[in-house]
Structures are given as C-alpha cells and as structure tokens.
Design a protein around this nucleic acid. Sequence first.
DNA 1: GTATCGATTGAAACTGATCTTCAACTGTGA
DNA 2: TCACAGTTGAAGATCAGTTTCAATCGATAC
Lengths: 168, 168
Amino acid sequence: MPDPIVPRKKTTGISGSVKNRPAAAGVDLSEHLRSHGIHPTQQRLRVLKVLVESKAHLSAEEIHGLVRAQTPRIGLATIYRTLHALKEKGLVEEHRFNDEFSRYEAMPANHHDHLICIECGKVVEFDQPLIEQLQLAAAKENHFSIVFHRLEIYGICESCAALHKKNP
Amino acid sequence: MPDPIVPRKKTTGISGSVKNRPAAAGVDLSEHLRSHGIHPTQQRLRVLKVLVESKAHLSAEEIHGLVRAQTPRIGLATIYRTLHALKEKGLVEEHRFNDEFSRYEAMPANHHDHLICIECGKVVEFDQPLIEQLQLAAAKENHFSIVFHRLEIYGICESCAALHKKNP
DNA sequence: GTATCGATTGAAACTGATCTTCAACTGTGA
DNA sequence: TCACAGTTGAAGATCAGTTTCAATCGATAC
C-alpha cells in the first residue's frame, strides 16, 4: 500500500467541515492571547484571526497571503514566529498531511481526526470516541501514557469518486 | 494540547518491536525487486537489504550511512531515488513522525500503527483490528472510500516514565 | 567478443520550506 | 524625555529532498 502523493498545490483552497471555534464565538482575541501569555500585537492578532475565521487548514504561505491583505508589509518570518508561539501555547495545531509543508488550524474545542481526499485535498474532520478508547487500550498494553495522537484517513471523497465514474 | 517536539537526533538509533518482514524470512531480494518491476541493481538491493534487516524506522541519511559501509561511493540522490521507487511499488512505507524529515521501513506483511515516545523517540508497532473497523465506519459516514490511513499515538514510554520518577 | 542504446549512477547544483540574525521600531514605565 | 525589553521586516542561512548531466552499466543483438 504505497502512499499516493496528494496532488495539492500550495494555493489550493481546502474546505472542510469545521465546528465553531471558541474564539470565533465572540471571545475577544486580544484577551485570548494575553491570557496565554502572548503579547497581542496587530500582527499576531491578524494571524490568529485568519486561522479562527478560516474554514480550511492553511499553510504558512496561505496565512501570509491572507494577512498581507490587511498588513501588506508583514514578513513570512513573523508568520512562522507567530505560529510557533501559538502552537506552543496550544492555540493552534500543526498538521502535516501528505504534503511537504505544514498546515495550521486554530485549536478546536474538541480533538478530532481527519479524512483527507487524495484527489482534491479536501479535509473533513470527524471524531469517534470509541477509537480514542481503543487507543488508550493499545497504549496501556504497551505501557505508554498517551500525550496526544494523530489519525489521518486518506481516501477518495464522494465528488471525486463521482468524477471518476464520469471520466474513468 | 501543543505538539511537543520529539527530541530526537538524526543519528539516534531507534528501536522498536518488529515482526518478521517477509523478505527477511528467506525470500530472494533480487527476485522480490524484479517481480515488482524494479531492476535489481547493487545499490537498490543494498538499500532494501538495510531496510529489511533494520529493526528501526530509518531516515534517508541513516540509510545512506549504512549502505555506504558496503558501497562507499553511493550518493544520497540514489538513496532518495531508490526509496521513491520502492515506495511507489509498495515495498517501503514512508512515515513522518514528529520530525522535520521522513523515515522509512520495509513494508510489513500487515498494516500496523505506531506508538512513539516523545522523550526518547522509541517507536512501537501495534495493531488493533477494531480501530480499523471504526475508521471504515467514519469514512462511510462521510462518503469517503479509504485508500490508506495513518495512526500515531505520541506519549511517554515505560522506561522514560520510570526515569521521570527518579529525576523529576 | 563487440557494438548499441536505454537505464542507472554519483556529483554538484538547485529548490523551497523554515529558521536565524540583526538593525530598526514600538510600547511602557520611570 | 529616556531607557529598555519585546517585536518586527528583510535578508540571508539552513537543510531535506530534487534535478541535471555526463559517465557508467547491463541487456541484447550481431
């Protein structure tokens, strides 16, 4: 079972079903940052805002592009620095799907896993509490205490499958 | 829950419980390659041999080092080219744990998932058929057909936990 | 054995994501 | 106003992985 290459370009917008982020539901982003020990500069607020409002899992490049619409002179280094800080404080999650670069999302209220279409790159989030329980059992059996986990299912989404039937 | 950085150096040997690889159990590697449409050159045989005999998940750099012991002039480009070919034919699996680079293992007979210690980098393989069934259910619910998946559980292994108790 | 020709190789240069450095800027408090 | 710490943008460095290209290999025909 070889890893198919996900044929996705950096610029591709990726949609995914996303639950309400806590910060999107009216929480003051500035206070959100401050309460996590991050000084809320304009740049940091805008990076976080882009992530909170986005329905996608964004690359650093994409975040840079979106933030630049409001703050044209912001540098890519600031994006990376901010993402590191946010990640370290647990406000942002980093994913490495089948790309050669990372994608980021604002930390959701609940952990979830990902279904990723290897044709179009669409990412759908899901959660299966039972899977988490079985993971706990597997960890216990091997004398591990779980800190976090990552479950990614790669496959073909409904619309790509339909396309295949039309143009096989 | 921020991603802890796995404190692992490129040169660290990583152990893990590994079932017998089919090719390690007496199958002729040369024939193994040929039957998958890969011309069995010395270089390719040695890369595959290192992977089959290894008990670890090796980086390209590590494979290069090991192969060079027998073929001193082999280039890193050849390692990468060979790994691509092997991966494409499903003879090798690529993993990206919490590192910034890829690790490879000879394709095991059965799919398995990974427990990874975030302290020492130890990788333990396990499988839980029930988890796979639940994944199928999650995919079906979202109208995905699964091609492959990746489950990685990060945590603290028994011996690192014991160390922590001694030197907290 | 020898000629031919495509496949494969090693070395070196390249690429692209990410990180580091450093001087300039900003905000805050004395 | 001054000092100082924290933050920023720009440019350059780094490093895993890829591409290029001339040299070599190996299978096949003769």
